[in-house]
Design a protein around this nucleic acid. Structure first.
Ligand SMILES: NC(=O)c1ccc[n+]([C@@H]2O[C@H](COP(=O)([O-])OP(=O)(O)OC[C@H]3O[C@@H](n4cnc5c(N)ncnc54)[C@H](O)[C@@H]3O)[C@@H](O)[C@H]2O)c1
Ligand SMILES: NC(=O)c1ccc[n+]([C@@H]2O[C@H](COP(=O)([O-])OP(=O)(O)OC[C@H]3O[C@@H](n4cnc5c(N)ncnc54)[C@H](O)[C@@H]3O)[C@@H](O)[C@H]2O)c1
Lengths: 215, 215
DNA sequence: ATCTTCTTGTGCTACCTTTCACAAGCGAGA
DNA sequence: TCTCGCTTGTGAAAGGTAGCACAAGAAGAT
């Protein structure tokens, strides 16, 4: 199973899992690749190909057992354990994330928050108390934190990420609009609102231009 | 120029533009594809290929004129105009977005905000007053809003998006963890934190498994 | 005027992802 | 047991995307 799985496949697996959890809650027993495809915005063949990289989970003529497939996907994605997360930068975005109920529900425990602003340190948000940066290393080790969410201003983001990685973080979710430079063994994903907005502008502008041409 | 440009190319163009704006502010006059590539996390060939889809902007032996290329990219991405944006759902994420200073700086004006919660209506955040949903259609038309940011709870997201589209929105930026079903002419981008976090878990788990195998 | 150095723009190639199409397999019903 | 209807799993084809390598061109030195 040393096959290289692409990011887009992994994202789709997350989508399938999300859907399966809903179906499971609704007590539905089986689901076909076609149904799964329709509700996640892809094609039936794509669903089957994605799953086939990891094994044969379905029954020909029937479909997939919802609950079994859910468990398989949870295993594949590494979601059978809980993950401890720290938030770096408790500003507007950071505190929104601390209050995000979905995390706990999905296996992520935000167990620490750090800020450089003295006036914020000691304050408690959603059951997590904001700590000084000086406590970062110790806390990462003690609480076995594997994921750091960067929500500092852009100027501080690279340093904050470096520090989290040195303290043992294996993965970084970055909200700051900057491409972080980190060692290749650290997993990084970006949440870049402006990038996405600009992408939307391109599409709208292009559609407008195309419409004019065919006039 | 009716060539189909891929999403990944558009995203990279945004990155180049971001870098060019910084260089321009630093009064740097020229930049090579190699420099641009290094600071945006790609390769020099990729930078040149991306730009070549739209024309020849560089000088052989020299590089690209920073300020010219910046303008070209702004034109390509449709950022020579300002864009009016509305936020739907003024909760934790919605209010963080309303207070996000980068938007204005980048050509996006958040001119309206809507919420279903009576107690929030009339309140003012970052210069924008929260309106009732009943005013949505009229406001979209009056203020020529082209982009709607969905920041409602997941159950309300599809309906909110539909309503924004019917009111004239050409693009949707969706923060709710759901795949929206919208007419194909509407541009949609997703900001799905849980999806990204799950992707990180996969990578970390996989790296862990690979390390064990080679023991 | 020629040579050297540097960097672009691009055809070609290699790789990767998605789609197609169908044999194989499963269960139900006769 | 055989047939029928349905859906999976997968090899092969198609469609894209990224990287390589180099001719073409630009500026400055000699
Ligand atoms: N506000 C938004 O809607 C939004 C949206 C998308 C992206 N972002 C990005 O997210 C990041 C945070 O944005 P925000 O609006 O929450 O900003 P903010 O100013 O509200 O919060 C930033 C917080 O980080 C803290 N901080 C500063 N330096 C730090 C350091 N070295 N270590 C730890 N904490 C530090 C500050 O004290 C502050 O509390 C920025 O990079 C921003 O570009 C914000
Ligand atoms: N909080 C986070 O950090 C976070 C992170 C990522 C994604 N999200 C997603 O963003 C969305 C909003 O999250 P939140 O944490 O800000 O939730 P929230 O509960 O704080 O805010 C939601 C707001 O939407 C309003 N609302 C409800 N129905 C509405 C409707 N039909 N039209 C307009 N407004 C309506 C509510 O009154 C509330 O003010 C959710 O879908 C959530 O899953 C949140």
């Amino acid at each position: 199973m040393a096959r290289k799985i692409s990011d887009s496949t992994v994202r789709r697996l997350s989508r399938y899992l999300r859907r399966l959890r809903t179906l499971d809650r609704q007590e539905l027993k089986v689901v076909s690749s076609r149904e799964l495809a329709e509700s996640t915005g892809t094609t039936a063949a794509q669903v089957r190909k994605d799953l086939s990289h990891f094994g044969s989970f379905g029954k020909r003529g029937q479909g997939y057992a919802v609950s079994d497939l859910r468990v398989h996907l949870e295993e594949i994605l590494g979601l059978t354990r809980r993950w401890r997360v720290a938030v770096l930068g408790v500003g507007k975005i950071g505190s929104a994330l601390l209050g995000y109920g979905f995390f706990t529900q999905r296996g992520f425990d935000v167990v620490a928050a750090f800020d450089s602003d003295r006036s914020k340190i000691g304050r408690e948000l959603a059951g997590v108390s904001v700590q000084a940066l000086s406590e970062l290393e110790q806390t990462f080790v003690d609480r076995e934190i594997s994921i750091a969410i960067i929500a500092t201003p852009v100027e501080a983001a690279q340093k904050a990420a470096n520090r989290a990685v040195r303290a043992g973080a294996q993965a970084i979710l970055n909200f700051a609009p900057i491409k972080l430079r980190l060692p290749p063994e650290v997993a990084v994903r970006e949440m870049d609102v402006t990038l996405e907005l600009e992408g939307l502008c391109y599409l709208v502008t292009e559609a407008g231009a195309a419409a004019e041409e065919t006039e």
